[in-house]
Amino acid sequence: MRRFGFTLTRSGQGPFALAAAIVLAGGGALALDSTAQSGPRTRPVAAPHGRRPAPAWHNASWLNTDRPITLESLRGRVVLLNFWVFTCYNCTNTVPSLVEFDRKYRDQGLTIVGIHTPEFPPYAGEHDRANVERALQRYGIRYPIAQDNDDRTWNLYDIRFWPSFVLIDKHGDIRYEGYGEFHLNDGSYATWEGRIRELLAER
């Protein structure tokens, strides 16, 4: 079997350079080279950042709310943005924790806003409002969800992974950001809950 392997090299923001290597291999070599490894990854826990103003989102399509929610309208509340998509298992695994945060802290001043950003083009069904609605019912999500079908808010917040989280204080400043699945009462859950409580306690 002939096998052609291509390695793509990234150079800043410029075009990708392509270096091609042709390998002749015997046998059914459909498996990847076992030495293929990515570089080290950041642990998926929240990390504090300096305060900076949260950018205003302008999503037009919302669920679980009568009208679009603006950042300005949430001044005085703590806001947890959750970037997710219903086809992301790590995202839906985290939903029970978010539902619990909503239940415990909504009345104390927390607003969770789900930003539903599709991974794939529209043919995959992630852009379809009815599919998102079904997911909200399936997972018991009652907090507002914005459809981010054009990735605008995803890009505005420079998000890279599903699921991701941005915690905004009562003054509209970003205080914590992070990514990665977490579960009820695990370490990351406790970290996020502590930060929510910290910001809720602020004036």
Partner: peptide
Amino acid sequence: APDRAGRGARPP
């Protein structure tokens, strides 16, 4: 995420 190891080429 960018290649934190700073390598120019990455495996497939």
